[in-house]
């Protein structure tokens, strides 16, 4: 098994654990934690493909004269992961604030008991 396949399997396992947590747990905080795990699985996929994928502009043997900034196309996967981490941080902050607001409103954090919008 190549390292890329190993990383992808770890990512798939992480995604499945997150999905199981988001689907089975009733506590809203743990549902959010499961969503975070799934986001992390996507990040791991980005990193793995960035590390092991083909880089058309990447020189095979970097010469000492090329110590300047490399072509920014090499860093696309890494940049995507950094922006994704920022988005995940914002999402977690807003999600936890929402959970706190709902908890103050209904005195519960059980997602199966919050049925005020049920028709």
């Amino acid at each position: 098994m190549t390292p890329l396949a190993g990383c992808l399997l770890v990512s798939a396992l992480l995604f499945s654990i997150g999905l199981a947590g988001a689907l089975t747990r009733r506590n809203a905080i743990l549902v959010l934690a499961g969503i975070e795990l799934m986001l992390n699985a996507a990040n791991l996929n980005f990193i793995a493909f960035w590390r092991f994928g083909p880089h058309p502009d990447h020189p095979i043997m970097p010469t000492p004269g090329m110590l300047g900034a490399p072509a920014p196309e090499e860093l696309t996967g890494l940049m995507f992961v950094i922006f994704s981490i920022a988005v995940a941080a914002a999402e977690a902050a807003v999600g936890l604030a929402l959970i706190l607001a709902i908890y103050r409103h209904t005195r519960t954090s059980d997602v199966s008991e919050i049925t005020e919008m049920k028709g």
């Binding site: 098994m1 190549t2 390292p3 890329l4 396949a5 992808l8 960035w50 590390r51 092991f52 994928g53 083909p54 880089h55 990447h58 970097p62 900034a69 490399p70 920014p72 090499e74 860093l75 890494l78 940049m79």
Partner: peptide
């Protein structure tokens, strides 16, 4: 992905802090 062996053998792409800052 599971069969390609040449993909993981190359060096890691250059990702110094300087390059990330420039990008």
């Amino acid at each position: 992905v599971a069969r390609v062996t040449a993909a993981g053998s190359g060096p890691a792409p250059a990702s110094s802090m300087r390059a990330i800052g420039f990008a």
